[in-house]
Amino acid sequence: MIAIVDLEIGNFANVEKAISGRVTKDKKLIEKADKLVLPGVGNFGEAARSLDKLKGVILEQIETGVPFLGICLGMQLLFPSSSEASGKGLGVIQGEVKSLPENASPHIGWNQVFSNGGPDLLKGVSAGSYFYFVHSFYVQPDDSDLVTGTTEYRANNEVKEFASAVRSNNVYGVQFHPEKSSRKGLEVLQNFKEL
């Protein structure tokens, strides 16, 4: 069973449908799950508070090697903290969550992810495929080897990039919303399901 962790913000009915998962905040179900998805929209601080009660069981699951996918804010919650608001994330990936430059924020719409595909989550996703983004903050892992996908944006007429996909062992994070990225997004969700 794939548990989609419910932080009571946002609606993930279509993720549930795409991966035949179960949206839940029941610790027992999360404990038993073969895979975990942490989707998220909204504010880091509020989400961190909702996550607090479930943190223990999630961290145990990650420790035992259960595949974990953080989506958007769920990816940012893999980090210890965020410059958006106070509150503690899971801290399973070290690094920072930073604000996009003011004139490039919020970053809304379809943008390209450059990745070498790799053998797992982004398998079959050709470099430059478009995914849907909506966010104002981005992650920067201390270890740049953890970055598995990057996305370019323009700020002050300068092209910059941020990490749009990360991986640390069994923990995956994507800044885009696979559940809002039509066919390409469904491929990513399917890849996760098949891990």
Binding site: N11, Y132, S182
Partner: peptide, 27 residues
């Protein structure tokens, strides 16, 4: 929200924060 895999926006006749919240909660 169950069947669509692209973003969608809803509006028209919303008068309150509660109205906004209800739409978001429903997807």
């Amino acid at each position: 929200s169950r069947k669509l895999y692209i973003p969608f926006t809803v509006g028209g006749g919303i008068r309150s924060v509660e109205g906004v919240r209800n739409l978001a909660r429903n997807g």
